[in-house]
């Protein structure tokens, strides 16, 4: 089983279930996971004003499913969850809902069982589902093979998930401050330079690099750099001059190239430098 954390919802899924669809919207969204054959699991969330009346919600939901052609719709009860099951064609589908007071949201998870209904697996996944609170001002995300901590003041602004590369970009102050995490596959096929030289191509324009370092830790060769906005802009007078910190490395265990970039201002740069990206269990890097 592997851990996923998305929008502070933490849960465990079988190793071969991968996230293929996702939403960035904190108010309402959906993520879908598939094994190699088909979609198996879906997570939906929506913020609601208060605890819903599950009895009524389930009654309405049951009748809606029956109208949609689902057969054999019946109730399911798991600890903390309220659910229904039904047959859609020859496939069994189970759906469970739960209210999370921590962020006032209603969560629905959907399981698709193409063959047998694995109740033990379903129970294990539902038991693992929890709200992951922010810790020391950082929010943890686990997805696309990255385990990262981004400042809770930043919003997920952009997710670029390609077959062999993923970038998550978090921003604050309308993009004035930024935290970027990336992971790239097959670097041996396309990376013709060192990760340190490649890192220069990933930086936003308008920064003067003042310091470049390279150090080895737990078998990982980490290239880091620091710089300042140059020349300074008028906006820097009001919002603080921007500094940049970045790191890149190839993990010998996963054989992937990782990078993280922090753009921050003088007052908070030290605090935000505690953002981190973990590539394997032996290595967690901050810029």
């Amino acid at each position: 089983m592997k851990t996923f954390i998305w929008r502070q919802y933490r849960f465990e899924l079988p190793d071969d279930w991968e996230m293929l669809q996702f939403s960035r919207n904190p108010e309402s969204g959906r993520c879908a996971f598939a094994d190699r054959r088909q979609f198996r699991f879906e997570l939906n969330w929506r913020t609601v004003p208060g605890t819903p009346d599950f009895e009524r919600v389930l009654r309405d939901y049951q009748s809606r499913l029956e109208e949609d052609g689902m057969e054999g719709v019946s109730r399911l009860e798991f600890p903390k969850w309220h659910g229904v099951r039904g047959m859609q064609g020859r496939r069994l589908t189970t759906r469970h809902g739960r209210f999370f007071a921590e962020n006032q949201s209603l969560v629905e998870v959907v399981f698709i069982w193409p063959k047998d209904w694995d109740k033990a697996l379903e129970r294990r996944i539902l038991d693992s589902f929890q709200f992951q609170p922010s810790q020391d001002g950082f929010v943890r995300w686990c997805a696309f093979g990255m385990d990262l901590r981004a400042s809770h003041t930043h919003q997920l602004w952009e997710t670029n998930a390609q077959p062999t590369s993923t970038t998550l970009r978090f921003t604050a102050q309308k993009g004035y401050r930024e935290q970027r995490f990336a992971r790239f596959a097959m670097p041996e096929e396309w990376l013709a330079t060192t990760p340190g030289q490649w890192l220069h191509t990933q930086l936003p324009k308008g920064y003067r690099i003042d310091q470049e370092t390279r150090h080895e830790r737990n078998g990982h060769d980490i290239f880091s750099l620091k710089g300042l906005r140059f020349p300074p802009r008028v906006s820097d007078l009001f919002r603080g001059r921007r500094a940049i910190k970045a790191s890149a490395w190839i993990c010998p265990e996963t054989k992937r190239l990782y990078s993280l970039v922090l753009v921050s201002t003088g007052r908070v740069v030290d605090l935000e430098s505690r953002m981190s990206l973990r590539c394997c269990e032996h290595m967690e890097v901050s810029p």
Partner: peptide, 15 residues
């Protein structure tokens, strides 16, 4: 060979 997940590999090979 490249340590990819199934769907990463599928998308790359299909492409």
């Amino acid at each position: 060979r490249y340590g990819l997940t199934f769907h990463e590999s599928r998308a790359a090979v299909m492409g």
